[in-house]
Amino acid sequence: MAVDEGLKIELGKQGVFVTTIEELYNWGRRNSVWPMQFGLACCAIEMIATTMARYDLARFGAEVFRPSPRQADLMIISGTVTKKMAPQVVRLYNQMAEPRYVIAMGACAISGGPFKQGYNVLKGIDRYIPVDVHIPGCPPRPEALIQAFMTLQKKIDEQPLTGAGRPRHLDAEAQGEFPVPEQGAHDLEPTSNKGVWTVPVVIR
């Protein structure tokens, strides 16, 4: 139930704060997103810079990078995901507690980047796990990561607690397990998880 905006402002002037549970709940969630301490390649250096004093990601409530997936809410895929590393990344994502979010940082993580046609690099981590925010760049600047983080906060803020758009941890039906790909004779098997990713249709 939404509060009338005008009434809310008027009450605020009188020193009365009105809110909804949804607003309060999401306010708490979006300001305490704890990322996982996890870097894959050169983008991780920018991620580290983002957490340091000059850019200070802690301003957004993400000051603690957790060394265990059990305590983390956000996975920043910072760098090239090789086919050798992909099963480990997917397994770590599975081991995170709900609600969990993913930021794919940099050209490699979102598409394979300069190594897209190589034999050893995954063409984007969104083949196996759902990605919330993609950041282009090689590597993206810390400002871009902060922008992505704010986008994620906005997304969390807009999630209703009931209905179709509710976050996955409140939905008993939502998929909880994402299969870990096997390392086959030539490629990862399967090459993508069903329902997570479909081959893009090229419109010419």
């Binding site: 086919k83 050798k84 034999y119 050893n120 390392q183 086959g184 004779a185 030539h186 490629d187």
Partner: peptide
């Protein structure tokens, strides 16, 4: 560098990738 189950040797010049 490659995983143990991998067949073939990718830096060979006649390597055909999937």
């Amino acid at each position: 560098l490659m995983w143990d189950e991998f067949k073939d040797h990718p830096m060979r010049r006649d390597y055909v990738d999937p």
